[in-house]
Simulated scan of single mutants.
Amino acid sequence: MKKNVLGFNIFILLVFFIFSSCSDNSSEEFKNDLALGNMEQDSVVNNPDNGMEQDSVANNLDTPDNEPVILDPRLPADVDSTYVLTFEDDFNQLPGTLPNADKWQSKLPWGPSVTINNERQYYTDVLNGDHNAPNPFDFDGNSNLIITAGLNSPAQVETTGLDYYSGVLTGAQSTPYKDGYIEAKIWYEPGVAGFWGAFWLLHRYYDSPQDTGANGKRRTEIDWEFVRGPGGEFLGGPYDTDRIPVAYHYDDGQWSISGGGFKGPNGSPGLSVQCDGTVINNNKGVGPVKQPSGEDLAGAWHRYGVWKTDNFVKWYLDGILVASVCDPAIVSQIEMYPIVNIAIGGNFPGPPNPEDYPTSMLVDYISLWEPTVK
């Protein structure tokens, strides 16, 4: 009987010992877990990023991952945010090379044999092997195209019939578009008399049976014009580079909206409206564009943009809307393409001063954004 009692007591002691050990271990684990939990909580409180991550996880448990929409900072704020970059030339070529023939032509649709506006330059068509005048194109090795205009030699004057040479690039085969935003970043030299640089758009089917233009209006054109000179035969003046004319033309320029108003053949009046409701009539037009500070636009880099749809044309300077035409009845509803060039003299700027030449215009890029679904 004593044996049994002794054995039972020993058993009780063993059970108590095991239970105590387990309790001590559980207590320690609980303390450790509690301490770790407090550390994590403190970490969230003291590190807002952790809290943001926790909230982000909590709020997106059932939400699929979406790639963020990254907007090109060059696009003006009001331009359709669904547009995507469809064409770009950043002119990142070596000095001594020619423009990319897959992107550009170095001639206008009417070719060098037709002189318009009494201009005095010969556009050397270097991409088609023209050597009748100097090559006007080069690259500065810093992602800029250089277009140069200068005097022809006596032999070149005899061959071309013109006393100056210059360059033109057209995107007729690579960048025709109907709806989109296009922009060029350009620098040109101040104080050059007779200078007429431009970034402009021309109707894709110019002077062809398919040229139905803006709802039947033919030969449409949208212009940014960098002009310096005393003024031409019929367009007034003087012109200086603290302002830039913008213009919209159709029917081969017979109908034009510019700073001089909305005018048709023989000065006949037209009527349209800007997108802010401002009336465009025979007395009130669009432009010229000036900087708010009044400083010269020449001698500095600026971004010149055009947003065109079937309903309107809008001009942008450095991403800011500066002029518009909101009239589907006259806005071109067939594709247009960009052109960049330097003209010399003629009806608009007036005669050049030979001492001012050669002169150059630099182009950093030309870029086009279009809707994802055309």
Rank of each mutant, 00 (worst) to 15 (best):
A172F: 08
G129W: 08
L317P: 00
I342H: 03
P288G: 07
Y248D: 01
V126G: 10
N100Y: 06
M361P: 02
T115R: 07
Y304V: 01
A329P: 04
N128I: 09
V192E: 02
F195Y: 07
G213T: 05
S106W: 02
G264V: 09
Y177Q: 03
D310P: 09
N92L: 07
P230W: 15
T115M: 09
D252G: 12
K308Y: 04
Q54Y: 11
L297V: 04
T175Y: 13
P354N: 12
P352K: 03
L34F: 14
Y165C: 02
G191D: 04
A35G: 09
A300N: 14
G129S: 11
D90K: 08
D80I: 04
T159S: 08
G346W: 00
L94T: 11
G236I: 01
P190N: 07
R243D: 09
D327F: 01
H131A: 15
V322H: 02
D179Y: 04
I334E: 13
L14G: 08
P68H: 00
N128S: 15
V306L: 07
P292T: 07
Y337H: 01
V126A: 13
L317M: 08
G231V: 01
P136W: 02
P265D: 14
E189M: 06
G261P: 01
E158D: 12
Y177A: 08
F312V: 11
L13E: 12
T170V: 04
I10W: 12
T160I: 02
S256P: 06
W307A: 03
M52D: 13
N32M: 14
L235S: 10
G141N: 03
S81K: 10
P134E: 12
T124G: 02
P68Q: 00
V15I: 15
S332Q: 10
T97P: 04
P358V: 06
D102H: 05
H203K: 13
Y316E: 00
L36G: 15
N266M: 15
S23C: 11
E28H: 12
V168T: 04
W196C: 07
D90Q: 05
I182P: 03
G111N: 06
E28W: 14
I257A: 06
F91N: 00
V69I: 14
V45P: 08
P109F: 01
S27Y: 12
K103A: 04
V84F: 05
T170H: 00
R218K: 15
P95F: 01
H249K: 10
F348G: 00
N144V: 04
F262H: 09
D310V: 10
V322S: 02
N59M: 09
P112K: 11
S293Q: 14
D179A: 06
N152F: 02
P351R: 10
D49V: 11
L151V: 08
H203T: 15
D364Q: 05
Q173H: 14
D130M: 06
M39D: 13
N32P: 13
D80N: 05
N38D: 13
A133E: 05
E119G: 07
T170L: 00
